[in-house]
Design a binder for these strands. Structure first.
Lengths: 349, 349
DNA sequence: TTGAAAGCGTTACCAA
DNA sequence: TTGGTAACGCTTTCAA
């Protein structure tokens, strides 16, 4: 009937005392050291659960020099793209007994630096960067590339391992899809060009247009959320692009959120989708399956990216080495109604 | 020109040695102890930045017994409702130098328990519950209600402080709005009824219907995501409710995600929104502003809930007492086109 | 104003 | 198989 008889604070020494053994024995028993016989281990475990003892992680961390925590740095966890990546990271981490801290920089360099410092102070063993930047406090930390990985967005400085899709190839597929449907006046609402990801998409769009003998028509948005997409589309419709007064018959958006905003702007102008104007998104958010019309998009395996990122990071930390430098995950063209009927296979070879 | 000359590992003792003072002086200087004169403090700070020294947080935590970290427990961070709450929590926490861990239980009790244990092991100083349950390992921890707060969902066990809106009143507003537009056959797609939040909404819906002399028509969904909403609406349309073969002229959905799925199902049946059937959501997600049609909804101040929750928790931790037991935040009816024109003020007094 | 020293609760090495 | 014990790097009390 022994319950966690709420005393001040149970330490390992208390458990050892009750069990009539030394703390070192308790410590070993709790980490299933093979030298401790089963009888002893069971007896100790029983006392542990009766007393409600819990290992003081801060003492353990000080002693071992490891925290078993990692930090995910991103700009903005409320951007719909990220939570699923974070959840993927958590899936793997929690299986391995590793905690996940989340830090949203919100564009503040000060916050980014503060987060980077967490690695120096031993709060975390590693970093997963979703924002494409290594905090500058870490730039000249020796071997920092062994405890940092980048996911989705590559990092300019240094040689940080990266998990991503081939953004250029994904855009190839998007543009070719639209071309195959007969469109010739195809615009691109691009994301922030300081991001290599959005730059890669925009560059690939231009390449594809030019090799099809068509004029690229790019509207760069400063962010990649709904509002930005709405405004970008409005200005795109107002401007009339290369040939003044013309409007695109198809718009490839750098994110699904941009696409949702842009489709709204188009409808407000009385345009029918896809009858008057077709849309393609990027990301494959769940909401795209039920939008009006459902959105043709490039599905990015967000959860899988999280899995891969966490695996790679935890492996690198465990082995103290840098393994793969780049892991590419497959994307998928999801054909829905925002572009009309499909006339090509979902995935080129 | 001294740079962080990458030596093995700089400790406070090293800094003290270089400065020609004792570690205790360094420790004091770094926490701006008034006893340390400015000259000394500046000299020490200079050495700190030259050597790239960073305080070992694990040692500090062991010594002080505080971690300056909190943990947010939720079911599923990829449900669109939560990230903004988490971001609100982070806003406040990072200002106060507190780190935020995120734990998604994904419905697993084992994971929930593991997270609860983080409080016992000193990994975190407090918990913010977004899932309405206190991990059972904590139920008989003395004074656990001083380091746990619940946000958005109340907790059945014990007296955990709560930040929320008045879900019942919010539903009053939603139902009255729909009634005022002339609807009489109003259905409710409810969320999981083990959650007090969704139960409060469903109960309030029924109360309002009955006092209007109308028959409640509730379809309970097991979750509150898009797919669930889609399926619930399909089955609702198939069943025909009280009067077989009838269909509602308005549907109040327990979440915006449910509403998006449900609207899709309605459109698939060829119903016009709001001409044939009106919809109301709950949450006020950004996407609702650009859905087709834009969704009338109850906006819940998610970020503000996060702010309030973090403030309350950090205050309780600092003062070692339990302050307010309940803080109610205002909600807002956002009238858009999914119900047709508004005929009542946005907020009743 | 500064220094010395005693822990904080573990882990892991060395003996037994 | 077990025990004793020295760290881990910091904070803080007590003296000087």
């Amino acid at each position: 009937m022994a319950r966690s008889t709420s005393d001040a604070r149970v330490t390992m020494a208390v458990v050892a005392h009750i069990a009539g053994v030394d703390v070192s024995t308790v410590s070993r028993a709790l980490k299933d050291d093979p030298r401790i016989p089963n009888v002893t281990r069971r007896r100790i475990r029983k006392i542990v659960s009766e007393t409600g003892y819990a290992v003081n992680q801060n003492a353990r961390r000080l002693r071992t020099g490891r925290s078993d925590q990692i930090l995910v740095i991103l700009n903005n966890i409320s951007a719909t793209f990220f939570p699923e990546v974070v959840e993927g990271i958590e899936d793997i981490s929690s299986d391995r007994g590793v905690g996940v801290l989340v830090g949203s920089t919100r564009g503040s360099v000060a916050r980014e630096e503060a987060m980077g410092r967490q690695l120096l102070t031993g709060v975390v063993d590693g970093l997963i960067l979703l924002n494409g930047r290594v905090p500058s406090v870490l730039r000249n930390m020796p071997n920092h590339d062994r405890c940092i990985v980048a996911v989705s967005r590559s990092v300019a400085e240094g040689a940080i391992p990266l998990i991503s899709i081939d953004h250029g190839k994904a855009m190839d597929v998007a543009v070719q899809h639209v071309l195959s449907l007969g469109h010739r006046c195809i615009a691109h609402i691009a994301g922030p060009q300081e991001s290599p990801t959005f730059r890669a998409r925009a560059d690939s769009y231009k390449r594809n247009m030019i090799s099809a003998g068509l004029e690229p028509w790019v509207k760069v948005a400063e962010r990649f959320d709904i509002d930005t997409g709405f405004l970008a589309m409005k200005s795109l419709l107002a401007s009339g692009g290369a040939a003044p007064g013309s409007r695109p018959t198809a718009v490839i958006c750098a994110s699904d959120e941009i696409a949702f905003g842009a489709m709204r702007a188009a409808r407000q102008k009385g345009l029918g989708i896809p009858a008057d104007i077709a849309f393609v998104g990027f990301d494959g958010l769940a909401i795209g399956a039920v939008s009006e019309p459902p959105l043709t998009t490039i599905r990015i395996p967000r959860r899988q990216m999280g899995w891969a990122g966490a695996e790679m990071l935890l492996d690198n930390i465990a082995t103290q080495t840098k393994g793969e430098l780049y892991r590419e995950l497959p994307f998928e063209l999801v054909v829905r109604e925002s572009c009309g009927a499909a006339v090509m296979p979902a995935l080129p070879d």
